[in-house]
Design a protein around this nucleic acid. Structure first.
Lengths: 222, 222
DNA sequence: ACATCTCGTACAGATATCTGTATGGACATC
DNA sequence: GATGTCCATACAGATATCTGTACGAGATGT
């Protein structure tokens, strides 16, 4: 089993709860906790530098802002930063997020190893998730694993994501086309972008750009 | 102090935590709990019918969907339904929501009496909130109370809300104008709507409709 | 080697958005 | 009663959106 685990979770009670489960139910000795993403990153760096790296990171997604100014405000940034240094570290996300598209995005884009949904059965789920991840299994939450084709997943490529993000920032398609060109991202043809967005309309059953952005915002995809 | 309180919160641990505080820290004897909005409503109706009504409702906003099919899926609906029967019941919302605009909206539109943010200091905040609400004080969370003019609040009237909601559903302004006319809501002139939306652009510093909807979605206003 | 399909691009027309100006009524202030 | 300020509406023009057709380049299959 894992011997050294880092827990990043700002909500103190939940933090203690996770530690208690790791210690008493799973029997992990060496657990460190952090209430802020930056603190978590510092502990991670220190352990890595001292050749005593963490094997598993359990992190929340959203961290409340408070008086302490943080460079990282989201678990996603923490995951990216940690993975850029130690790519093979296992990552389990523990969050209240329950939107399938968002959770799938975490596995697709951030290549997390497991996801546990805060809620009624979080204890049982967390235990089996940690055990599964230790066996190199990708541990989908039961909600997703049980009916994998319940919602026909929409696959978004990189350009789709960029388009959605830029549209949400209020840029026109022309401005986006110019941006893409400047950044050397291709394809960037005018009507290719139109086509891409039209396809997104079909996929999400949106009537127009505004509706599309409202839908993907609700889904938490951007 | 309150003698009879109803707690609606689906996350069991939090639910028990609230009850423990109400009992041991504040000394309230008669507390009932519910994990579902519908259950909470049933308990409320029963107590009201039996002339033994609740004096205070403490409720979460979001309730997880599970196998039990619910007619109410949000604390907001619960508040509306409860208030329509017993308008003078005190309501405290206990949620992880921390967006000032959204919380302000709860006070403005749902006339809640207090708000407690899930988090580090939730225990202290909950105690003072319950005590304040008992004294007929409107208990803003400390984040909002401390700097009331930190974010210059944008006042949205009914038409603004309707416009934002309909735009988010993908209706064009022309369609919205016709809808308003059919519903007998006025003003509904073509350029009045244009002007209203333009003002929203200014208020939220949005470049266009799509950007506007992205912003208000992020703020949780729709 | 040929047909077929997808991908990326170009163009064009109908519709919608956004911004500006103009007009008349309601209301208050002086 | 004259003046200015909102409020609600109308109209108009430049820009953007959305949809459809068309065309070449490359990949795929048979």
């Amino acid at each position: 089993m894992f011997t050294k685990v880092l827990v990043a979770e700002d909500y103190e009670i939940a933090n203690q709860g996770i530690i208690r489960i790791l210690e008493e139910e799973i029997g992990i000795q060496n657990i460190e906790e952090a209430k802020y993403c930056d603190d978590a990153y510092m502990k991670f760096r220190k352990a890595y530098r001292e050749q005593d790296a963490f094997e598993l990171l359990i992190t929340d997604l959203s961290f409340r802002a408070d008086h302490k100014v943080q460079t990282r405000t989201s678990g996603l940034e923490l995951i990216e930063d940690v993975r850029s240094i130690q790519p093979d570290i296992k990552v389990i996300v523990y969050s209240q997020e329950n939107r399938p598209d968002k959770i799938n995005m975490l596995f697709d884009k951030f290549e997390i190893d497991g996801y546990v949904c805060k809620g009624q059965n979080a204890v049982k789920e967390l235990i089996s998730c940690v055990e599964g991840v230790y066996q190199d299994t990708i541990m989908l939450p039961p909600e997703l694993a049980s009916d994998p084709d319940a919602a026909p997943m929409i696959h978004l490529d990189d350009i789709d994501i960029i388009l959605l993000e830029e549209l949400a920032k209020g840029y026109t398609k022309k401005e986006i086309r110019i941006k893409l060109k400047e950044l050397g991202i291709s394809p960037n043809g005018e009507s290719y972008i139109d086509k891409k967005v039209s396809k997104l309309f079909d996929d999400f059953k949106a009537k127009n750009t505004t509706h599309l952005i409202a839908i993907v915002k609700d889904l938490g995809l951007v």
